[in-house]
């Protein structure tokens, strides 16, 4: 069936089988490989994307379910002004080791600080509790999301 999904601000129209998973549509259909596939069993969260601003596992949603909706992937975080505060903070705070979970962690972090501009340590840990980092680099991921929140607030204030 024909679907149109707004991915990172541009409409993508495609004729897809109903069984096509959103993650495959993003990676193979739209060619955006920043969204990763890890466990493929709804356990690890590396396929996280934002659908209408809400983080979901794109391996556990059909592409047809996203018809008419807005999807943000890691490629959509950067704006004309440069890196998103979470991207800058993950770089500054060494919030990644192998980098496989990083796109998902950054999207969850971006959604969290949109909702809660000053998250506590516990709130960040709670928000990323559906996302696995197999390098176990959680300390710096938490620090990076908090640094991003602080940077986003000070940008907003200025």
């Amino acid at each position: 069936m024909e679907i149109t999904i707004n991915i990172n601000g541009s409409d993508h129209t495609a004729d897809v089988e109903p069984r096509l998973l959103l993650v495959d549509h993003i990676r193979t259909g739209a060619g955006l490989t920043g969204t990763h596939i890890g466990c493929d069993t709804t356990s690890c969260g590396v396929c996280t994307v934002l659908v209408d601003g809400t983080p979901v596992k794109s391996c556990t949603m059909l592409a047809v379910q996203a018809d008419g909706r807005e999807v943000t992937t890691v490629e959509g975080l950067k704006s004309a002004d440069g890196l998103h505060p979470v991207q800058q903070a993950f770089s500054d705070e060494h919030g990644l080791q192998c980098g496989f979970c990083t796109p998902a962690m950054m999207l969850v972090g971006a959604a969290l600080i949109d909702d809660n501009p000053d998250p506590s340590d516990d709130e960040v840990r709670w928000a990323i509790s559906g996302n696995l980092c197999r390098c176990t680099g959680y300390m710096n991921i938490v620090k990076a999301i908090q640094a991003a929140a602080a940077a986003a607030s000070s940008n907003g204030d200025s």
């Binding site: 109903p18 069984r19 493929d40």
Partner: peptide, 22 residues
């Protein structure tokens, strides 16, 4: 479109089904 093995490699896909959005 037919998703074949070459295109999807070892991806886990559900078996085919009809879909309606009520």
């Amino acid at each position: 479109m037919c998703a074949d093995r070459d295109e999807w490699g070892s991806r886990m896909l559900p078996a085919q089904f009809d879909y309606i959005a009520a």
